[in-house]
């Protein structure tokens, strides 16, 4: 029963992270793909940081930044009455940061593949920059969105370090699958750990299989 709760909570966390990240990452990826700004490499590096930082480092800084004693944490408490740390809301926030590159990078790649000539043509037809993004680039970047959504969902499902630092292990609140597996191993309940670990392994494999399938089709479309 507790494990099923962890499965549900993990799905909810991954689903919310994916749905929230898509609209947040889209303008950022568009800006990174089109802007000539000299700030672009710096922003790209910041976005990619979660790929190379140990999750515990990211979790530690998020804990420092968002605890109720910090300005941001205190502000959150003042408007919601609840703390961001050791709560599901805090996990969502941390996941948005941690999974950001997994949504931004496929979108960035997809947007860069939209020919500048096509966007110029759209501009001469009366499309503003926002119009070009929404009505020209987005329809041509559907596969980039699908890839980003699958990678973000799968990556959030597999989170451990950041979740442990920000959320701890509160059943029904922050105890997601990876934490449940860790707890089963700690209590030497290897059978239960096996079931959850095998489930995650299969899920991860299928996710990547779909992503590579999508990527393969995309290459063919571009060649066509």
């Amino acid at each position: 029963m507790a494990d099923m709760q962890a499965v549900w909570l993990t799905g909810l966390l991954a689903g919310m992270t994916t749905l929230l990240l898509a609209p947040l990452a889209t303008p950022l990826a568009w800006w990174l793909a089109r802007s000539p700004s000299s700030l672009r490499p710096i922003i790209e590096a910041v976005v990619a940081l979660p790929l190379v930082l140990p999750p515990t480092v990211l979790g530690f800084y998020l804990l420092v930044l968002l605890n109720p004693g910090s300005p941001m944490g205190a502000f959150w408490v003042s408007i919601t009455g609840a703390s961001l740390t050791f709560s599901f809301s805090g996990l969502v926030f941390a996941s948005l940061v941690y999974s950001l590159p997994f949504m931004v990078q496929p979108l960035h790649t997809a947007f860069r593949a939209v020919p500048a000539a096509t966007l110029e043509a759209a501009a001469t037809l009366g499309a503003s920059s926002r119009d070009q993004l929404l009505n020209v680039a987005l329809p041509l970047s559907r596969r980039g969105f699908l890839t980003g959504a699958i990678l973000t969902f799968a990556h959030t499902v597999g989170e451990f370090g950041v979740v442990l630092m920000m959320g701890g292990n509160i059943p029904g609140e922050t105890r997601v699958l990876s934490i449940a597996i860790y707890e089963h191993v700690e209590t030497l309940n290897y059978d239960a750990a096996h079931v959850l670990a095998l489930g995650l392994l299969c899920f991860s494999f299928i996710s990547l299989w779909v992503v590579y399938g999508v990527a393969g089709q995309r290459v063919e479309v571009l060649r066509g």
């Binding site: 000539a117 110029e120 043509a121 501009a123 001469t124």
Partner: peptide, 14 residues
Amino acid sequence: THRRGLGVVFQDSR
């Protein structure tokens, strides 16, 4: 560009 009220035909159609 989008507010110049142009009709443009490029050499490569686009």
